Simulated assay, not measured.
Amino acid sequence: MEQRVQDAVRRHIRTRRYVLSVVWTYPGVREARNRVEAAETELGLKLYTRLQPFQDRAVLRLPITAIGIIIALTKR
């Protein structure tokens, strides 16, 4: 029974990956993804500028990444 479950999970994962790869190729989805990526980049640059003073004062010189931003915001 365990092998049947593992095989079913593998088939499900394979099918899901295929479906997602097809969906990502739709023009509307591609356009939305591009807009989201552009907004993330813009927001990231704004956050980087605002959080740089915290980065400069940090004892450990962590790079500004998602985890670095979270740490900086929780130390306020």
Score class of each variant (00 low, 15 high):
39 A>R: 06
53 P>C: 12
28 G>Q: 13
37 E>W: 05
51 L>P: 06
54 F>R: 15
30 R>K: 05
45 L>Q: 12
25 T>R: 07
34 N>F: 05
49 T>C: 07
46 K>P: 02
48 Y>Q: 14
42 E>K: 06
30 R>T: 08
32 A>F: 08
31 E>F: 00
39 A>I: 13
29 V>L: 07
32 A>P: 03
44 G>L: 06
25 T>W: 03
50 R>W: 12
32 A>E: 11
31 E>H: 06
44 G>H: 05
30 R>A: 06
26 Y>W: 15
52 Q>Y: 14
28 G>P: 04
36 V>H: 10
43 L>V: 04
36 V>K: 13
51 L>W: 10
43 L>K: 11
52 Q>T: 15
38 A>F: 01
43 L>I: 04
33 R>D: 00
39 A>N: 02
39 A>P: 00
44 G>T: 04
44 G>S: 10
44 G>P: 03
41 T>H: 07
26 Y>C: 06
53 P>A: 09
37 E>C: 03
53 P>E: 10
48 Y>F: 12
45 L>Y: 07
46 K>D: 10
39 A>L: 14
29 V>C: 09
52 Q>F: 13
38 A>M: 02
40 E>L: 07
46 K>G: 03
50 R>Y: 14
54 F>S: 14
46 K>A: 08
51 L>M: 12
39 A>D: 05
42 E>H: 06
45 L>R: 11
32 A>K: 08
47 L>D: 01
39 A>C: 06
36 V>P: 13
26 Y>K: 09
50 R>I: 12
52 Q>L: 15
29 V>Y: 14
42 E>Y: 04
52 Q>N: 14
45 L>T: 09
51 L>Y: 10
44 G>N: 12
40 E>D: 07
41 T>A: 05
53 P>F: 04
38 A>W: 01
50 R>H: 11
48 Y>K: 14
44 G>E: 11
36 V>T: 15
25 T>E: 01
31 E>K: 05
25 T>D: 00
54 F>Y: 12
26 Y>Q: 13
36 V>Y: 04
38 A>T: 13
53 P>M: 10
51 L>R: 11
45 L>F: 08
50 R>G: 02
51 L>C: 10
42 E>R: 08
25 T>S: 02
27 P>Q: 01
34 N>T: 15
46 K>N: 11
29 V>R: 13
47 L>K: 03
48 Y>E: 15
43 L>N: 06
54 F>E: 11
34 N>Q: 14
37 E>T: 05
